[in-house]
Computed example of a mutant assay.
Amino acid sequence: MKQINLGNSGLMASEIVLGCMRINKFSVDEVKDLINTAVECGIDFFDHADIYGGGKSEELFGDALTPALRDKIKIQTKCSIRKGFYDFSKEHILSSVDASLKRLKTDYVDTLLLHRPDTLMEPEEVAEAFNELYKSGKVKSFGVSNHNPMQIELLQKYTEHKLIINQLQLSITNTGMIDSGINVNTKFPGAIDRDGSVLEYSRLKDITIQAWSPFQYGFFEGVFLNNDKFPELNKVLDRISAEKNISTSALAVAWILRHPAKIQTIVGTTNKDRLKDICTASDVSLTREEWYEIYRAAGNELP
């Protein structure tokens, strides 16, 4: 499994991440097996959030964690989503991290992300919370999720801690951050910049993009693989995956990993065999022609 230098910070992590949103429905032994399978495949980075399973996902992961295993992996969690609102207050950030650490049964997390932008954010408060968490050793590094460049700039102005990660939705059928860069200076729909050129901004600022929902189309409308709504895309994926002797799932992840932005990809499968299969994406290299053919097969036109 290839490693990525997160945000050029020196924190090295596997380019494929296991997302733990759905593990709340499993037993401790099943979660242990899933974690061990991930580690055997080269995954050493695990993504959580305080809201996943109402906290149950973190709790089960903590129950499955051993001291020896903790030393081998990196744990990331997120906070700020509350029932009906977002909360970047210092009080909530600190209490959320304490609750996550208790559930995860660990003294620290390697990265903490602010989950969704809070328009009522007071960046000075966030900076104070980050300072306390860092000085206490509870959080090693910081980032955001679903933020645009100006929101990051505003927060970065007040905190001395470099934001090294931005977690964003990206898949073959959710390519807004790519489309706007390809369709510059046109009136084509793809030219609409919905996120402030976040892809190029992230590369300029050494911020690692973490791609969530790599198999989803729409927001959470379903997967595009083997879906009758995407006949041309699946035809191309079937052909190229057969040529490379990998699955279409692995190919969909390899397509993201091919981008020179060095995007880290989060997969949320709870099936051990599927996880092993997806991890083969790290050994696949797509040509420019193959990458663009897949991009066009998803319905994207080049100007």
Results as ranks from 00 to 15, higher is better:
Met1Asn: 12
Lys2Val: 09
Leu6Gly: 06
Gly7Val: 14
Gly7Pro: 09
Gly10Gln: 11
Leu11Lys: 11
Leu11Glu: 14
Ala13Trp: 07
Ala13Glu: 09
Gly19Pro: 02
Asn24Ile: 01
Asn24Phe: 14
Asn24Leu: 00
Lys25Gln: 10
Lys25Asp: 06
Phe26Asn: 10
Val28Glu: 15
Asp29Thr: 10
Asp33His: 13
Ala38Trp: 11
Val39Tyr: 08
Glu40Gly: 05
Cys41Pro: 00
Asp44Ile: 09
Asp44Arg: 01
Phe46Asn: 07
His48Ala: 12
Ala49Ile: 10
Ile51Val: 15
Tyr52Gly: 01
Gly53Val: 13
Lys56Arg: 14
Glu59Asp: 11
Glu59Ala: 12
Leu60Ser: 08
Leu60His: 06
Phe61Thr: 03
Gly62Asn: 05
Gly62Lys: 07
Ala68Gly: 12
Ala68Trp: 01
Ala68Thr: 09
Asp71Lys: 15
Asp71Ala: 14
Asp71Cys: 01
Asp71Phe: 04
Ile73Trp: 00
Ile75Ser: 13
Thr77His: 05
Cys79Gln: 04
Ile81Cys: 03
Lys83Gly: 00
Lys83Pro: 03
Asp87His: 04
Ser89His: 05
Ser89Glu: 02
Glu91Trp: 02
His92Arg: 09
Ile93Asn: 01
Leu94Ile: 15
Ser96Cys: 12
Ser96Trp: 06
Val97Thr: 02
Asp98Trp: 08
Ala99Glu: 14
Leu104His: 01
Asp107Glu: 15
Tyr108Thr: 00
Val109Cys: 00
Asp110Tyr: 01
Leu114Cys: 03
Leu114Tyr: 07
Arg116Pro: 00
Pro123His: 13
Pro123Asp: 10
Glu124Met: 13
Glu124Arg: 10
Glu125Thr: 05
Ala127Met: 08
Ala129Ser: 05
Lys135Arg: 14
Phe142Trp: 05
Phe142Ile: 06
Val144Tyr: 01
Gln156Tyr: 00
Gln156Asp: 06
Gln156Val: 08
Lys157Arg: 13
Lys162Trp: 05
Ile164Asp: 07
Ile165Trp: 02
Asn166Ile: 01
Gln167Trp: 09
Thr173Val: 14
Thr175Tyr: 13
Met177Arg: 06
Ile178Gly: 13
Asp179Ser: 11
Ser180Phe: 03
Val184Trp: 03
Asn185Thr: 06
Phe188Asp: 10
Phe188Asn: 13
Pro189Ser: 11
Ala191Arg: 09
Gly196Gln: 12
Gly196Lys: 14
Val198Cys: 06
Leu199Phe: 07
Glu200Arg: 04
Lys205Arg: 14
Ile207Lys: 02
Ile209Met: 13
Ile209Lys: 03
Gln210Glu: 15
Ser213Ile: 01
Gln216His: 13
Gln216Glu: 12
Tyr217Ile: 09
Phe219Ala: 12
Phe220Glu: 08
Phe220Asn: 12
Lys229Asn: 10
Phe230Ile: 01
Val236Arg: 13
Leu237Gly: 09
Ile240Met: 05
Ala250Lys: 02
Leu251Trp: 05
Val253Glu: 05
Trp255Glu: 12
Trp255Thr: 09
Arg258Gly: 03
Arg258Tyr: 04
His259Tyr: 03
Gln264Asp: 11
Gln264Phe: 10
Thr265Gly: 03
Thr269Ser: 05
Arg274Gly: 08
Asp277Lys: 10
Ala281Gly: 12
Ser282Trp: 04
Val284Glu: 02
Leu286Cys: 06
Glu290Tyr: 05
Tyr292Met: 15
Ile294Val: 14
Tyr295Pro: 08
Pro303Arg: 00
